[in-house]
Design a protein around this nucleic acid. Sequence first.
DNA 1: AGCCAAAAGCGAAACGTTTCGTTTTTCGAA
DNA 2: TTCGAAAAACGAAACGTTTCGCTTTTGGCT
Lengths: 333, 333
Amino acid sequence: MAATYKDIQRLTGLSLATISKYFNGGAVREENRQAIEEAIRQLDFHVNAYARSLKSKRSKLIGGLIPELDSTFNTRMMADVEEYLRQRGYGLIICDSRLDQDSEKEALDFLLGRMVDGIITIPYDKSGQHLEAARARGVPVVVLDRLPTDFETDAVILENADAARTAAETFIQNGHKEIAIINGPGSLFTMQERMRGFQETLAAHKIPIRQEWMIDGPMTIDGGYQNTKMIMSLWHKPTALFCANYEITFGAMMALNEMGIRIPDEISMIGFDNLPLARVIRPRLTMVMQPMEKLAHKAAELLIERIEGTAPKDPQIIRMQAELVAGESVKTM
Amino acid sequence: MAATYKDIQRLTGLSLATISKYFNGGAVREENRQAIEEAIRQLDFHVNAYARSLKSKRSKLIGGLIPELDSTFNTRMMADVEEYLRQRGYGLIICDSRLDQDSEKEALDFLLGRMVDGIITIPYDKSGQHLEAARARGVPVVVLDRLPTDFETDAVILENADAARTAAETFIQNGHKEIAIINGPGSLFTMQERMRGFQETLAAHKIPIRQEWMIDGPMTIDGGYQNTKMIMSLWHKPTALFCANYEITFGAMMALNEMGIRIPDEISMIGFDNLPLARVIRPRLTMVMQPMEKLAHKAAELLIERIEGTAPKDPQIIRMQAELVAGESVKTM
DNA sequence: AGCCAAAAGCGAAACGTTTCGTTTTTCGAA
DNA sequence: TTCGAAAAACGAAACGTTTCGCTTTTGGCT
């Protein structure tokens, strides 16, 4: 039988109100403080989180809703979110919607049923309509990485267009004119933006856009692999290749290796977000890096501010810049 | 102001006891059931999880404690655990100890403070002593993947020695006698077992063990990469290489590719757990695969049984076999 | 119509905190 | 020594469920 305030009361003679004050940082006389601490030790007392939540209407629990746990980007983000939250006393309940909209809705309901104080999500449903359920219950939502089309809320995202622009500019400044991109599905906000930034840059430099070099494909290792093979089997091959996310970059590397195509002699390459790969591959890959930890921490920070009422009134849309990390995979023509 | 049973009572005229029964699957007359459901709809009622937990002493929350969220194996496991738990109404609070023992202790305390009903962990502290804190509070623990040396509890693990044995046997049956292994740190239970199984098999076939071919190194891409380069630069090179985990396999592939060493012509290779890689690399890699989903589900199942009191009295140690998935990366000599 | 077991419903007392308005104690200054 | 404001402690009433031991209702039988 777990100890309660009443047991502490029995041992110290103090009132419940005072004991509560002790646990909530209120002023307690030194001598009583010691008595309470002694009682805690004797009883191996731990505050009952349920009772506390019931009264205070706060669970100190955040829901994390992501499209798949099985993807480096998502888990990196969640790991950083979790770290930030825990330092501030919040727990993170993770739900993985497994790339399914119905499942995403269910997972959200599940989290709301658990009475989380807030939600951080990388939404799968592009519109974000499912998030209305949270709003209806007064639970704040911070969206990470993607901007929902039909749901206005706090968001922390990468300047995706700029990120792709940086990659394209780098190629162009090194004299490339025949540049391909392997992108993720155009249905994703992130990917759409990257494609837009990329194409705008080529256009700005009057470099013609060849449809067969602008690929929207699956955001997977296999997608990157297949599409790279496809592009590198074309009659007219590009001299430079931009891979617009981690998995694609990975697959592309595999394909190039396998085809015996040397980087950067035969093709120049810029990848995206390749943390574990980054230090390993030779020649070092030039890469566009997202400030993942910053993004994650900012999202968590914003959510806590929203929960605690210290955030600005209007929904905040925070955009961060990617950084180009130079390697040796871009040849100067 | 959220609705409560009292509001339902007001609308239906039923007693709180009956309403409670409704929400807990008890017998309620059809006509009352409908009245309650109508009231729920009108009020947009949701059960208050705190109050429920306070009375029932169950949070329906499980703590997931892992050494790093940023590792494929761990996140795959947690994704599968989460899926299983959620289907059964349990939420998963994830904590990442970031490969640090103190942090692992803190995270465990954090979870216990949140009053989780049970804990699933891939322990970092080899001894598992930190888990005593859970036992002291009556919170059951299921250990995944690793067997603590000093803490007896339910566990679900791979037959690691057998897994390595299978790999070694495969090489031997294909006529190899010069076989290397790149393994993870010997301080990890898992890795120790794999090394043991590997060496026992060579010994059983009277194949001499060369120390420079038996490598304990970091369990990282870079580790696999560096150690592969090292082995393949030896005067006397092996004809076969077993990589004992995902990251190592990955790094080894990179290194071999980069050195222009062809698989399986110049070296035969067996990898471990390479799910995303599996479908991509050519030639297809022969691999030792863990039944990850089964392991994860079993662990979750066992924990729920333990919580609900239906598990056998003694701690269960469940061992599962890895499977050899044949590819084309092993040459017959 | 009347009986009775089974099914359904009921009232009240918890569960372990927080919080509100009030009372008591403390301690420095007069 | 006394006074009074500030600091600390107090008692009691919630918070929204579940549960226990009863009482009432139901409906298939004579």
